[in-house]
C-alpha cells in the first residue's frame, strides 16, 4: 500500500517538488554570477575610479582625464563581461543538469527496475 502511495507521490507532489528544486538551482546559479546586476553596471567605472575634469579647459589635461576614465570603464566592461559570459554558460550547464535530473526523476521507477533486471541477468549466468 505504501509503495502505491510512494509512486503516486513520485509523479504528483514529488515531481512538482523536484521541479521547484531544479528551478531554484538554476536561479541560484544565475544569481550567484549577478548577471542582471553586472549588465546594469556594465559600463560603470571599475570601483568608481574616475577623475573629475575640473574647472576651465586645458586640452592635455582633459584628454588625460578622459583616457584615465575610459581605461577604468573598459576595465569594468572586460571583467564584468567575462563574468557575465561565464555566468550564462554556468547557468546553461545548470539548466541542462536540472533537466537531466527531472528526466531521471520521471524515469526513476523504470530505471530502478532496469538496474535490478540488468543486475540479475549479469548475476545469474544463462
Amino acid at each position: 500500500m505504501i509503495l502505491v502511495t510512494f509512486f503516486i507521490w513520485h509523479y504528483t507532489l514529488g515531481l512538482s517538488y523536484a521541479l521547484v528544486c531544479s528551478v531554484d538551482f538554476v536561479k541560484g546559479v544565475f544569481n550567484y554570477f549577478s548577471v542582471f546586476y553586472l549588465l546594469r553596471t556594465l559600463f560603470s567605472p571599475w570601483h568608481s575610479i574616475a577623475e573629475r575634469y575640473g574647472r576651465g579647459f586645458a586640452l592635455g589635461e582633459y584628454l588625460m582625464v578622459l583616457l584615465g576614465n575610459l581605461v577604468s570603464r573598459v576595465l569594468g566592461v572586460i571583467v564584468r563581461a567575462c563574468v557575465i559570459v561565464f555566468g550564462v554558460i554556468a547557468t546553461a550547464c545548470a539548466a541542462m543538469g536540472a533537466a537531466g535530473f527531472l528526466l531521471f526523476w520521471l524515469l526513476m521507477p523504470f530505471a530502478v527496475a532496469g538496474f535490478f533486471i540488468a543486475g540479475l541477468i549479469l548475476l545469474i549466468p544463462a
Binding site: 507521490w9 514529488g14 538496474f115 540479475l120 541477468i121 548475476l123
Partner: peptide
C-alpha cells in the same frame, strides 16, 4: 567480473530506491 557488475547494479538500484523513499518520507 560480470556477477560483481550485476551485484553493483542491483545495489545501485537499491540505493536509488532508498534515496527516493527517504525524500518521500522527509517530504511528508
Amino acid at each position: 567480473v560480470n556477477a560483481l557488475l550485476g551485484l553493483g547494479l542491483i545495489l545501485f538500484g537499491a540505493y536509488a530506491l532508498f534515496h527516493f523513499f527517504t525524500l518521500f518520507l522527509t517530504f511528508y
